[in-house]
Design a protein around this nucleic acid. Sequence first.
DNA 1: AAGTTTGTCAACCGCTCCACG
DNA 2: TCGTGGAGCGGTTGACAAACT
Length: 339
Amino acid sequence: MGRSPCCDEVGLKKGPWTPEEDKKLVEHIQQHGHGSWRSLPKKAGLNRCGKSCRLRWTNYLRPDIKRGHFSTDEEKMIIQLHSVLGNKYIYIYIFMILLLINIYNNNNNIIIIIIIVGCRWSMISKGLPGRTDNEIKNYWNTHLKKKLLLMGIDPVTHRQRTDLDFILNHLTNIDHLFANNPIGNLATINNIPCNNNNTLRLLQADALHLVRLQLLQSLIQAMATTTTTMMSTTTTTHCSGDNPRSYNSSDIIDRLDISQAKLSLPNLSLDQDYFSPITPPPPLSDSNFPNFPNCINDQEPNIVSTLARADHDDSTGGINLGEYADDDQNMLSWKDILE
DNA sequence: AAGTTTGTCAACCGCTCCACG
DNA sequence: TCGTGGAGCGGTTGACAAACT
């Protein structure tokens, strides 16, 4: 065991391969096969270590390699296989639970647990002919991970994210969405009759508040879930991927830009005509929201659906944003919720 | 046009596993 | 059983290109 001395040899070239080196390597392997990688460089006339040659061949020069754009099917396959093969942490998690149970029960029996760790990318690459583990790994780290995160899916657990980071980032996206889309767009895309810009501004502001409040509600739920599991009542700590973060209530309020005063929103006097009939419109498309990340369209709350779901105040014809009901239909003020 | 930041991906590093003498 | 070398793995780095300011 121990580290191979292969790449420690002094004077061997490192870094990017030149076309000449590629040619030498390919020609040698085509004529003689790779044989022992360690002895290959000398035989092929290359000033490289065997390991470097092997990587160059397996990741780049091999004739059966498929390079370039990943198809949708390939993406799906990677995600699917990663959800099954990729999560080595789950085994450690299971191990810890079993260990704790064992300690709790004061059980002196020896538990033998086989932890399966590793072989992820190589196994995933077997499901995608022509793709190398290195390429899949790179594609996962640079594209798919981000895509899943934007879709609200945790790339480690492959479950819908409910943590604070996701909700706060979502709020940022929503603000960005509204900041970058002209008012006219919002009216035309949802086929809402449009009489004047003032009404549209109110509609836009209303929709923004509703979306943010809905997300705030999710945030509060997430906080409630998290805080019950934590020892501290003043700080909510959670993990998102590899980045542990801490929040206190003022951080959250700062990020949301919602103070308690702002939460007590007045009933907005929107003309009822603009919500009649209240039927959920078709999902928003890319062309309607060019600044919105493509991949999260399906996951994004539809603004008019949100409006349709909002509590409708019959007395004013507006929408009551100031209160939310709990499970028993008791009306709660935001002050109550935050406290 | 120039400087800076960000994203991509080939290549490297350090480790473990396995076969073999 | 142990030591050694070869092979392969996942994580990380850094050069380069593209995008942005």
